[in-house]
Simulated scan of single mutants.
Amino acid sequence: MGTLSTHVLDTSAGRPAEGVPVELRSADGSLVGEGRTDADGRVGSLGPERLDAGDYTLRFDTATYFAASGTTGFYPEVTIAFTVADAGQHYHVPLLLNPFGYSTYRGS
């Protein structure tokens, strides 16, 4: 089934980003799932057991994470739009984060 996970790494600290609030929303903006990264920076399953094909966004509340670590960040949130093309696949969307930049890719 189409499932989703994420992993956030704080590249400036060289460790997982624990406690980052994450929201998954459908193309119409409806909340589909939410979670918070664990001690390993992961949300192992986000949203329903099956994600239908379509467009989604992941919103990472980076301001909360940076405030908890006493860091001032430039981006208070990171929003990643992506497309689930095959509802039978697992999708993994990692975020590499630092106070002044970020990058992402489709993981496995």
Results as ranks from 00 to 15, higher is better:
Thr6Leu: 10
His7Cys: 10
Asp10Cys: 02
Asp10Glu: 11
Thr11Leu: 07
Ser12Leu: 08
Ser12Lys: 02
Gly14Leu: 12
Pro16Cys: 00
Pro16Asp: 04
Pro16Met: 00
Glu18Gln: 12
Glu18Leu: 10
Val20Asp: 07
Pro21Phe: 11
Val22Arg: 01
Glu23Ile: 00
Leu24Pro: 04
Arg25Met: 09
Arg25Pro: 06
Ser26Trp: 06
Ala27Gly: 10
Leu31Gln: 09
Val32Asp: 08
Val32Trp: 05
Val32Met: 09
Glu34Arg: 14
Glu34Gln: 15
Arg36Thr: 15
Thr37Ser: 08
Asp40Tyr: 05
Asp40Met: 11
Gly41Leu: 06
Gly41Ile: 02
Gly41Asn: 03
Arg42Lys: 14
Val43Phe: 01
Gly44Met: 02
Ser45Ala: 11
Ser45Phe: 06
Gly47Trp: 03
Gly47Thr: 03
Pro48His: 07
Glu49His: 09
Arg50Asp: 05
Asp52Asn: 10
Ala53Asn: 11
Asp55Glu: 13
Tyr56Thr: 00
Thr57Ile: 15
Thr57Ser: 13
Thr57Trp: 02
Thr57Gly: 07
Leu58Glu: 03
Leu58Ala: 08
Leu58Thr: 10
Arg59Lys: 15
Arg59Gly: 09
Phe60Thr: 10
Asp61Thr: 12
Thr62Cys: 03
Thr62Gln: 06
Ala63Ile: 07
Ala63His: 11
Ala63Cys: 10
Ala63Trp: 13
Thr64Gly: 07
Thr64Glu: 11
Thr64Asp: 12
Thr64Trp: 02
Thr64Leu: 08
Thr64Tyr: 04
Tyr65Val: 05
Tyr65Arg: 01
Phe66Arg: 03
Phe66Cys: 09
Ala67Ser: 12
Ala68Thr: 12
Ser69Tyr: 06
Ser69Phe: 06
Gly70Thr: 13
Thr71Lys: 10
Thr72Ala: 13
Gly73Met: 02
Phe74Cys: 00
Tyr75Ser: 12
Pro76Cys: 04
Val78Asp: 03
Thr79Arg: 15
Ile80Trp: 11
Thr83Gln: 13
Ala85Pro: 04
Ala87Gly: 13
Gln89Arg: 15
Gln89His: 11
His90Pro: 06
Tyr91Pro: 10
His92Met: 05
His92Ala: 14
Val93Ala: 00
Val93Ile: 15
Val93Arg: 14
Val93Tyr: 01
Leu95Trp: 07
Leu96Thr: 08
Leu97Asp: 03
Leu97Gln: 02
Leu97Cys: 04
Pro99Thr: 00
Phe100Pro: 00
Phe100Ala: 02
Phe100Met: 00
